[in-house]
Write a protein that binds this DNA or RNA. Structure first.
Lengths: 213, 213
DNA sequence: AAATGCACTCTATGGGTAATAGTGCAATCC
DNA sequence: GGATTGCACTATTACCCATAGAGTGCATTT
């Protein structure tokens, strides 16, 4: 359990629910990502309330007003955007692929999303610290993540044709999310510098071995 | 991810790590439980900072000073104590029982602990609300829970003879905790008034069906 | 032995104010 | 033509300080 919030380092622009990152969007995404990296650095060095949007704007090289074109609030600038779901990956999932087994396919989708984040352990630790020191930000991070995974629950219910009150979407997402969080803790605590995707895969494998023992 | 904190309603005194509830301890536990119920009621009605320890003491019928004999802080009085692990249940677990399969046995232990809580849905919802409105309390609740489950991780590593850096204890606990939290959400949201243990069992069954599909 | 009264220390909260986040619109720039 | 920006404004939050209340230790009472 744990009150681990999703930690996005190097997050990507949240596009419309399902979209392909392209041309203008790509440039926008890269710009927003740069804002977030700087915002996270400033938050780590000075605290969340220790830097102003003016300072962030200066550090990024845009106007303060423009920052609000990328992010609705200062908190969102620091948290960044959650990884987008690429259209092809989602179509595969909807078509009950790649394996036909829900938990496995959800794990594949999660791996894909995790690959889009590619955090460094120091970044995860730093952002964890910022969150710990700012319960407001943690609450917001968790609310955002909850909305994000709610979308996956809906996709699951639809793919599997579950009834509206079926608890399996919630359970499936809860299990995969718990593995993600467990892996994130290992990643942040680890000293061996393996990529996060590798640690997630190892965590999934450990869960599988526990289930099939 | 959820930021669901453990919600203890009708919590039991946190005894020494492994102990049997008896005589004097039972009376102490009942008294502490009464304090927590009143504290939770006051927090729900007035907010966490909207009642004083003096008021809580008056409502319970003890002196303010005595409250601190039961709980180290006001927050702890509201959160209550986490359920104790009964000695017999722990001995069974340590002896690799009841089934010999770690995840199943951990689920049995969790069911036992959940049985000791027996919350009502209104209580869960009320306490969730208090936590939402008081990030400080939520942070504390989560830190306590993290310590609590760390103990189970140690028990698992010992029971299974895992190496110190083996990730399986963390994964096993993460999965069971995610099922607990998922069940808690269903319980708080539900309108059919089934006991929490039943909903947890249903959640475990759903996870099992997803794994074996 | 546990509860309690009491006096004290420490910390967090409340209120007022100023700083900053957030907003809308028009002008400018690429 | 769309994005950026400047600007003036509104709304909200952080900061500061004093006070209330949480927390503490000890002696007395039950």
């Amino acid at each position: 359990m744990g009150n681990s919030a999703i930690l996005s380092s190097r997050p990507v622009v949240t596009p419309p629910p399902v979209s392909v990152v392209a041309g203008r969007s790509r440039r926008r995404h890269d710009a927003a990502r740069a804002v977030t990296l700087v915002a996270q650095r400033l938050a780590t060095e000075h605290g969340l309330d220790g830097f102003t949007m003016e300072q962030l704007a200066d550090a990024v090289g845009v106007s303060r007003r423009t920052l609000f074109n990328y992010f609705p609030t200062k908190d969102d600038a620091v948290l960044g955007e959650l990884p987008p779901v690429e259209e092809r990956a989602l179509e595969t999932f909807r078509a009950r692929g790649p394996s036909g087994r829900l938990l496995l396919d959800l794990g594949v989708l999660a791996t894909h999303l995790i690959g889009a984040i590619s955090p460094e352990p120091e970044e995860v630790r730093a952002l964890q610290l910022v969150l710990e020191r700012n319960p407001r930000l943690m609450v917001k991070a968790n609310a955002r993540f909850e909305d994000y995974v709610a979308g996956f629950r809906r996709e699951i219910a639809e793919r599997e044709g579950y009834a509206a009150d079926d608890i399996r979407p919630r359970v499936a997402v809860a299990v995969v999310v718990s593995l993600y969080e467990s892996a994130l803790k290992e990643f942040a605590a680890g000293s061996d510098r393996r990529p996060f995707t590798e640690i997630f895969a190892e965590t999934v494998a450990a869960a599988r071995s526990l289930v099939h023992e």
